[in-house]
């Protein structure tokens, strides 16, 4: 075969990365909101208020919400809100369209159909509520991931897509941890574990009841839990190294040292004090931001730095 398969346009790479991020964001948001809404049933007003504040702060950038229903509706269907599911699905669709020649027909069809459903979805339609909406999103996104896994070539395009998924997974979990880390309520940690699909995994892995510190340790550094920060960062590190090897002048590009340093730190026994956790989360978050910049500079830069950031002018003088 020729090397044609290895050509990924900078724009396509960026679209694939964002496609992965938005698909993951849609699914994660659906799960987080779904779990919180379920757990609120039968809980105290106090809990509802606290959760509304936590979620609103990290996802809606707002303190205005005291009731979770209103928050959930906005984070689901308000297309003008950048962290809403509708917004994410719309952006996923646009990015899929833009990278249409790099993804499989099956994966594309799924996103196209999901977009059609979400863009038309309204709450009163067919008496469907938010729970139905979340189940559609979760199902579609999971199907999408599965289709991508089973129908796409393992080429650079695939790696950019996966990078997007993993980066977003990291992003969401870090945000959740930062929102909840001051809380010592057990119910808060059960809801976090459930939100990322890790409650049962926690029970199986630790054989102990949920408590704040245990949950935090599990979510941050559990090697065998695929969504833990450690596991996700290891995957990101592997993909990034692979992608760098594919670059012609790979000598000049190095993974920022923050990433291996963070991985080493997580591989060793963790802190036990809550205030140390906060410091660790800050460090992980800044590592995450450094990496996000790094992807742009090393992979998408031909476009990011291209002329199109500057005005096009024409010059005709006499």
């Amino acid at each position: 075969m020729t090397s044609r398969g290895s050509i990924v346009l900078a724009r396509t790479a960026e679209s694939l990365y964002w496609l992965g991020r938005y698909m993951e964001r849609s699914e994660s948001m659906a799960r987080i909101l779904d779990v919180h809404l379920h757990e609120i049933i039968g809980s105290t007003n106090d809990t509802e208020g606290r959760w509304s504040k936590q979620i609103a702060k990290i996802f809606a950038h707002s303190d205005d919400y005291s009731d979770f229903d209103g928050l959930a509706i906005d984070l689901s269907l308000d297309g003008s809100l950048q962290s809403s599911i509708r917004y994410s699905i719309e952006r996923a669709y646009e990015n899929a369209k833009s990278a249409r020649d790099a993804i499989s027909l099956e994966y594309w069809e799924l996103i196209n159909v999901a977009y059609g459903r979400v863009s038309k979805y309204s709450l009163d339609q067919f008496g469907h509520g938010l729970f139905t909406f979340y189940s559609i999103i979760k199902e579609r996104c999971a199907q999408g991931r599965g289709l991508a896994v089973s129908t796409m070539n393992r080429d650079a395009a695939w790696q950019f897509l996966n990078l997007g998924y993993d980066v977003e997974q990291l992003d969401i979990l870090l945000r959740l941890l930062m929102a909840k880390n001051e809380s010592l309520h057990t119910e808060d940690w059960v809801v976090v574990l459930r939100s990322i699909g890790g409650h049962e995994a926690f029970l199986r892995a630790t054989n102990s009841p949920v408590n704040a510190l245990g949950a935090i340790n599990f979510l941050i550094s559990e090697k065998i839990f695929p969504r833990s920060i450690l596991a996700t960062m290891r995957r990101i590190s592997a993909i990034t190294s692979d992608l760098i090897r594919g670059i012609d002048d790979s000598q000049t590009i190095k993974v920022p040292s923050e990433l291996p340093r963070a991985i080493v730190r997580l591989e060793n026994p963790l802190a036990t004090e809550v205030d140390q956790i906060e410091e660790l989360l800050d460090e992980l978050w800044s590592c995450h931001l450094i990496m996000c910049t790094f992807y742009y500079e090393s992979f998408f830069s031909p476009l990011a730095k291209s002329n199109f950031n500057y005005p096009l002018r024409s010059e005709v003088w006499r």
Binding site: N307, F308, Y310, P311, L312, R313, S314, E315, V316, W317, R318
Partner: peptide, 21 residues
């Protein structure tokens, strides 16, 4: 004039001042 324009260009970047000819 459009067929004979002595200098014509497009560029990406800052504004230019009228040229000194």
């Amino acid at each position: 004039y459009g067929d004979v324009t002595p200098f014509r260009g497009v560029y990406f970047g800052g504004q230019s001042s009228p040229p000194i000819v």
